[in-house]
Computed example of a mutant assay.
Amino acid sequence: MKKLRFMVPCIVVFALILLCSVTYAQNGLRLVYLPGNATLHFVSPEPIQYADISTKELEGDLPIKNVLRLRLRDSVGHFNGGIVTIAGEKFIAQYQVVPGERNSPAQINIEPVDTRPLDIAGVSLSQNQLKRIALDLISRKAAAKVKKTNAFKMKGQVNQVYAFDDYFFLDVSFKNKTNLKYAIEDFRFKVDDQKVTKASNVQSVELRPVFTLLSVPSFAKSYRNVFVLKKLSFPGNKVLKIELSEQQPSGRIITLRLSYQDILSADPLPN
Rank of each mutant, 00 (worst) to 15 (best):
D119Q: 13
V146G: 01
A151T: 10
V123S: 07
L118F: 14
A143W: 00
T115L: 05
T149Q: 06
A142R: 09
P117G: 09
R116P: 00
K141G: 09
V123E: 10
R132A: 07
I133N: 01
A151L: 11
K147R: 15
I133E: 01
L118M: 13
D136E: 13
S126C: 04
L137N: 04
L118Y: 15
L130N: 03
R116G: 00
K131D: 10
K148V: 00
K141H: 11
L137V: 03
V146T: 13
P117Y: 11
K141V: 10
Q127F: 00
L130I: 04
D119W: 08
K141P: 00
A151S: 15
K147F: 01
S124G: 15
V146C: 00
R132W: 02
R132G: 02
A121S: 09
R140N: 11
V146Y: 01
G122T: 04
P112D: 06
K147H: 04
Q129K: 12
K141E: 15
K131Y: 01
V146K: 06
P117A: 09
A134S: 15
K148G: 08
K148Y: 11
D114E: 09
Q129C: 06
A134W: 01
A134D: 01
Q127M: 08
I120D: 06
G122A: 03
P117H: 11
V113M: 11
I133R: 03
E111N: 01
